[in-house]
Nucleic acid binder design. Structure first.
Lengths: 222, 222
DNA sequence: AGTTTATTTAATCAAATGATTAAAAATATA
DNA sequence: TATATTTTTAATCATTTGATTAAATAAACT
């Protein structure tokens, strides 16, 4: 009955199901994805889905968790592993990584918006993932507040900064179909433009939120 | 059999269904919304849904159409009815209206992203709505290109400008749950911050895309 | 009023869907 | 090899779900 008494010699079935589920759930969401679609995509018997994952819901939760980790993992790394760098530098690294991740997983932003919108991602207190997010938020806020106090950033509610940063990075991917249709650019061009944004977004953020040099000095003095 | 031989004296049943459908479809999307949920929300017999709207699909298309109109209607107005104003002024008006619309319909952005993501909104050539969008796009592009040529805007791909404008306006609403959870702001605060953005977004856009005054003059001369 | 038409209801259908079962096949273990 | 265990399969179940029907009620019309 149990799928995991011994180490799985052939991991492929379980992995095939998860990969198929990830593809379809990420593309079409929970309700629009049918277990039979997943089975077909994975090329396995329908019953194996329940054999390995108990239920559609459980499978979805595993996929969701992996997607959330993929989505915020890069952020956590960029912030945590570069404490010594300036906020500006950290952001540059974060943006670069993020856009690579999104180019490789273009459906990810919509999936994340989807689960947060539907409340599917509750955010369990005991969940280590929940704690990682909390830590990330704390670290990020600290950076922002410090940079405001030191005069490097304008005085403004941190939500605006976080929101605009996320917007500029993530939104084009979430709205890719809309933008491509409306502007008539091809997929190739679209990807090229997204790569351009690696350099542009840091410049834009600075244009929006950095204090002019003079003020920075004045503020530091008093 | 036909629901519309005479003018409907009592429009309420049909309207009640549509209102319930709009609420649920907009909140949860097509697949996650069940016809029985709609019937219950509307307080009517399930059969009436099919009596008035033939099918779930048809009802969804009507709701989608109304939502799309709501979403881009304000944009079309702002651009078309203010041809005499500068691009900058037009944008200010557009942003102001848009944020009001989104505060009143906070689920709208996610719904629009959702249908464009799933390809539910095909964009029928014969559809007048499709043409409106096309006109809007043309008018917008024209404005942008003109302002680049006159030196008011930096030389940059129009997609970046459109994308960033949409991002800054729309994304916070699409990611509201995510942002609120991550920054710990309440609904009240969130709405206040969104109102703030009416003034902030034009400033930010200018900071990102406007040419410094000197260059403007130089470019005009040659 | 009486007749026709439109609306509403309860019951039901057929297909889709998530899940289970019992037996077969494959694999590991003794 | 014989036995036990794990994996896979086809068949089936029980609900859910979108849709229809026929009868009942309400409204409009003559």
């Amino acid at each position: 009955m149990c799928a995991k008494k011994n180490l799985p010699i052939d991991i492929s079935t379980e992995e095939k199901i998860k990969a198929a589920a990830k593809k379809l759930f990420t593309q079409k969401g929970f309700s629009a994805t049918k277990t039979r679609d997943i089975a077909e995509e994975a090329g396995i018997n329908l019953a194996l889905l329940n054999y390995y994952f108990r239920s559609k819901q459980k499978l979805f939760e595993i996929v969701m968790r992996e997607n959330v980790i993929l989505f915020i993992g890069g952020m956590i790394d960029s912030i945590k592993n570069n404490q010594h760098l300036t906020f500006e530098k950290k952001l540059e690294i974060l943006i670069d990584r993020y856009i690579d991740t999104l180019l490789a997983n273009p459906d990810l932003p919509f999936f994340i918006l989807s689960v947060s919108h539907s409340g599917h991602f509750g955010g369990d207190e005991k969940d280590p993932l929940f704690n990682s997010m909390k830590e990330l938020r704390t670290a990020f806020f600290k950076d922002i507040v410090e940079n405001i106090q030191s005069g490097h950033l304008k005085e403004i509610h941190p939500l605006h900064i976080i929101s605009n940063m996320m917007s500029l990075i993530v939104f084009p991917f979430a709205a890719a179909n809309l933008l491509k249709a409306r502007t008539g650019v091809s997929q190739k061009e679209f990807e090229k433009l997204m790569l351009e944004r690696k350099k542009l977004i840091p410049v834009w953020l600075k244009a929006m939120f950095a204090n002019p040099q003079e003020l920075k000095i004045i503020k530091k003095k008093k």
